[in-house]
Amino acid sequence: MEMTRRKLLAFGSGTFALATLSSLPAFATLTDDAIAELTGGADMGEGAITLTAPEIAENGNTVPIAFDAPGAAEVTLFADGNPVPNVATFKFGPLSASRSASTRIRLATTQNVVAIAKMEDGSFQMAKANVKVTIGGCGG
């Protein structure tokens, strides 16, 4: 087959389309792996903990988030669209009044923030929040 420029372009873009389809969101499997490592593959319940994050983050550099996980011994936060999914792990000591905390995080793109709580009884609970990360202004 004669490789004309047109054929090469069509061939190339076809491969690209295939590659894109199979890789969204880019880091979701990294996050799944990190979560599996944390839970040992155990099932995760939902509904017992809450995660608060803005629907639209004005700037991905500094996104305020908060969680409340009554009965949790430890809470780990992940960002499934970040190059490194782990965000932070909060271990609660004997003098913590509530199993809650707020912080500010970096989000590279629109993605889910995931909170996994390891409860005092050894079970796991999950909460997810989708945050749209925007680019604004004329300079970005």
């Binding site: 500094t62 932070a88 271990k91 809650s100 912080t103």
Partner: peptide
């Protein structure tokens, strides 16, 4: 009270609020 492990996704000027 609390022991936090931070990763690079925590913003500049790390801020924590807790009880």
């Amino acid at each position: 009270v609390i022991d936090v492990t931070l990763e690079p996704a925590i913003s500049t000027n790390p801020y924590f609020q807790f009880e």
